[in-house]
Write a protein that binds this DNA or RNA. Sequence first.
DNA 1: TTTCACACCCACACACCAT
DNA 2: AATGGTGTGTGGGTGTGAA
Length: 751
Amino acid sequence: MSQDDFETPAVNTYVDALEEPIAGPNDEQVLGEDGVANTNKAPAGEAQSDTGAPDSSEKPTEGIFRGLKFYVAHNENREELLSLIRENGGEVLSALPSGGSAHEFVVSPYNTTNLATVTPAYIKSCCTNNVLMKLQNYLVPFDEFRAVIDTQLQNDNGDKTEDTVAADPAKDMAIDVNIPEVASNAVPTGGSQADPANATSGTPGTTGVAPTTAPVADTEKTLKQEPHGETKSEPSATESTHVVSEVHPPVTVAADSNAPADPAYENARPTVPKSRLPSHNKSSFTEEEDEFILDVVRKNPTRRTTHTLFDEISHYVPDHTGNSIRHRYRVYLAKRLKYVYEVDASGKLVRDENGNLIKTNVLPKSLKNKFTAEEDYSLATDVKKQFYRDLYQLDPDTGKSLITDDDAPNEAARRALMMDPNNIPGSEPSFQQYRVGERRGPVPREFFKTYAEKNPNHTENAWRDRFRKFLLSYGIDNYVAYYEREMDQGRSPEAMKNMTNRPKRPGVPTPGNYNSYAKRARSLSHQQQQQAAAAAAAVAVQGNDPNTGVQYSIPEGDLLDEETLNFISGLRRDLSRIESNNNMAFEYPQDIAESIRNDFTNEESQFDNFDPDDIPFPPQLASTELFMPHFFQFNSTRQFLDKVNEVISRDYEPSQAEKLVQDLCDEAGVRKTFSTGILTALSGDLMVFPRYFLCMFKYNANPPLNIPGIWTREDDELLRSGNEEDVKALTRKHGVGRIEMRKRFIASDLV
DNA sequence: TTTCACACCCACACACCAT
DNA sequence: AATGGTGTGTGGGTGTGAA
C-alpha cells in the first residue's frame, strides 16, 4: 500500500498543542477519526526546544507569549502585532535581539538578520488559536539576497526602489510583497492556521533556527481548518468581457516592456530574476503552494494517485514540475490531507443542501484497481464454468442438463455447435474433474459484460484484458490449482503478476514522467492558443452556455471543481468565438461612454468608498480557484486593491485584454479565468474593476449582487427577456448607458 | 550524510480499433 | 462477434544531483 493518504506517520517529531489523534494504519482507506485534541498525548516541545522554541506544553489559556520577547521588524500591521504580543503576555523589544536567547524572536516575513525570525502569521495564529503554534512552521530562514537588498535600500535611502520597481515588476513583487525563497508570512488561503511544515525545508541559507534535520511527521489539526476552497465560488459568471478604453480614463503608464517572457504561465508567484537565484534551479515549496496542492487533491480525491492531476497543478505553480509536485504530495503532504471532499460515483464533487462541499474522511476509490487473488480465482472458475457449460451443456454446479425440450431450433443448433463432438452423453466429467486444458475460447463478449455488471470493481474491458493477458498466459487450470493449493495449506494466494511482456515503445515518452520539458511543451501549446486568441480578439470573452460544442484542450480542465471547470470551459469557448469575430473591436460610442462615466461618478460615494482596511486579509471569498498563490502574499486588502488600481490604470488598448488579464495575474494574483469573468460581468468597463473586488469582499458574494455596472446572470436574462418592467429595473440599477452597451454585448452573442 | 526537488521507471488496468 | 494489437496513463514506486 502506498505511503499515500492517511497512514500514521512513522515518527512524531513534533506535536502541536492543537493536535488531534491521527489516523490509524489499519485501514488505509479511512481517515483518522476526528477526535478531541489531546494536548497531553506527546511531549510537545521537546523537539521544538532544539530550536529555541517555546514549549507548547505550557499552553496557558492566557498570556501565551509569557516569557517570550519579540522585536517587530515589520511595518505592515505593526500596531496590531505589538498589541497582540502585549495582550498575550509577551514582551516587545525595541531593538533587535542579541541572538543569545532562545526566547527572543524577530517578527518579520523576511529574515535579513540571521536571527531567529518568525512570520507575523505566527503571532496571529497563536492568538487566533490561543496557543503557541509549532514554531518550526513559522520560522523564516535567513535570506542573504534580501539582506543585500535591504542594505542597498538603506544605503540609497529608498530612492532606488521606485526605479527598480518600474523596471522590473517581478522584482517589484519580490521586494514589496515577498520573495519566493522566504517562508511566507501569508496566512494560508482561507485557513486560520498555517502549518508550513516545509516552510524552511531545503531553503538555502537556513541558519541556526533551522528545524531538526529529520523530516517532520506532521500531525497537525487540519480538521479545525476551514479549507479555503470550500467557499462556493461563482466565477462562473455568465457574461462576456470587454475592455473599454474610451470609458476608462486613460492613464499612461509604461507597462508593456515588463511583460513576463512567457505569458502562458499564470505565474503562481513572483519570480526573482535568475541572476539572483541560488545556483541551483530548484524551488522550495511554500506553504501556499502546499495548501494549494492539498486543496486540489481534496477536490479531486479519485485522482490523488495520478500523474496528470499533479501535472495540471503544475500549470498553476510555475516553479515546479508535475514530477516534483507529485513527489511533494506523496512524501510530505499526503499525511496532512486529513479529509477530502465527497464525490459521487463518477468522481464529481457533491454538495450539501446549502451548496457547500462535504468533508469526508473516507477516500473514494481511485481510478484503477489492482486485481486481487480472489478476483483472479473467481474469474478463472467462472470462465471454466462457461467452457464446461458450452462443452457438455450441463450446469457446472448442479450437473443438470441445460438442454430442454422447448429449445428453439436455432438454440438447439447453437448448443450442438458448442458441444464436444466426441463426448458420449453420460460420460461427462464433473466440474471438479474437468480441466480446461489448452482451450482459450471462445468467450462471448456478453460474458465479460455480464461479469462486469456482477463484479463492478473492474470494467468489462479490464476483466477481458485480465483474462487475455494473465489468465490465459498463466493457464486457467494452473491458477485454479495454485489458488486452491494455497488455500488448502492455509496460505494467502497471490494475484497473477508479471504476465505482461509488451515491448517498450520507441519514441513514446515514459509514462508517469512529467518533467520540465513536458511542462514547457504544454505551456507552449497553451501559449500558442492564447496568442492566437489574443491576436484575433479585441476582447477576451467568457460565457456560460455549457452546451456550446467548441472543445478546447484545457490541460487544467480537470483540476478544479465543476463550477470552475465550467468557467474555464466558457472562457476557452468564447475566446474561440471572438476569434471567429476576427479582431472586431467593440468600442463604446461616445454618447454611451459619456453616460456611463456620469453614472459611475454618481455611484462612487455609495459603492467605491468602503475602507478596504475593514476587510481582513485574505478575504473570506478569496479562494485559490480565483487567486494565485502569490495573491495571498499581499499584506492587506488595501495593498491588493492598490495593485489592482495600478494595473488597470495603465493604458491598455481594447486589443490588449489578454495582456491586462495577464498583468492582473502576474502582479495582483488574480487568476486569468477570474479576471476574464469579471471583465465580462463589467461589460469590459475597467473603472468598475476595483468596485467588483471591494463589493465582493465586503458583501461576501461573487459576483456581488445589486451593484451598478456588475451584471449578473439574472440581469442578462432579464435584459434578454425584454420585459418592460424588468428593463426599467435594470436601468435603475445600471443606468441607461450600460443598458445600451449590454444590449450590444448580447446582440453580439458575447454574453 | 541527510534532505529535498525533480527525473525517471515500469507493470498493468483500462481502453479502443481493425480484422 | 470474437480476437489480437496496441494506445494511454495510473499506481507505486526508485534514481539522481544539489545544497
